[in-house]
C-alpha cells in the first residue's frame, strides 16, 4: 500500500467517524492531501527559524515536530473539523488567542 493510499484511507476513516454526508471523491481526497502536505511543509520550514534562538533547539524541534506530524498523519481533516462555523468553537479559540497573546506580550517582554 503506497503512502497516498494510506492517507486516503485515513481521511475516509475520519470522515466516516464525523458522519459527513458528502462522498469522498477524488477531488476532495487530493485537495485534503495537498492541504496536509502544505501544512506540514510550512510548519517544518517555519520551525527552521528557531535557529535564531539556538541551532540545537531547532534540530530537536524539527525532529520532534516531524515525528508528531508522522504519527498524527491526517491532521487536516481534524483541523478542518476544529475550524467549523459553530459559534462555541469560534469564541473558544478567540478567548484562547486573547489569553495567549496577553501572556506572550506580558511575560515575553518583562523578562527581556
Amino acid at each position: 500500500m503506497s503512502f497516498y493510499d494510506v492517507i486516503i484511507k485515513r481521511i475516509r476513516e475520519i470522515q466516516e467517524k464525523a458522519e459527513e454526508e458528502e462522498p469522498v471523491t477524488n477531488v476532495t481526497a487530493s485537495a485534503m492531501l495537498t492541504a496536509e502536505l502544505t501544512l506540514i511543509a510550512s510548519l517544518l520550514i517555519a520551525v527552521v527559524m528557531i535557529r535564531l534562538i539556538h541551532p540545537i533547539l531547532m534540530i530537536i524541534m524539527i525532529i520532534v515536530i516531524f515525528i508528531i506530524a508522522l504519527m498524527a498523519m491526517p491532521i487536516m481533516p481534524k483541523l478542518r473539523q476544529e475550524q467549523n462555523d459553530s459559534f462555541n468553537n469560534m469564541i473558544f479559540y478567540v478567548i484562547m488567542a486573547l489569553g495567549i497573546i496577553i501572556a506572550l506580550f506580558y511575560w515575553g517582554n518583562l523578562n527581556v
Binding site: N84, D85, S86, F87, N88, N89
Partner: peptide
Amino acid sequence: SASKILGDKGE
C-alpha cells in the same frame, strides 16, 4: 440557544 442557532449549520 446559541448552540442550536449558531451551530455548524451556517456553511
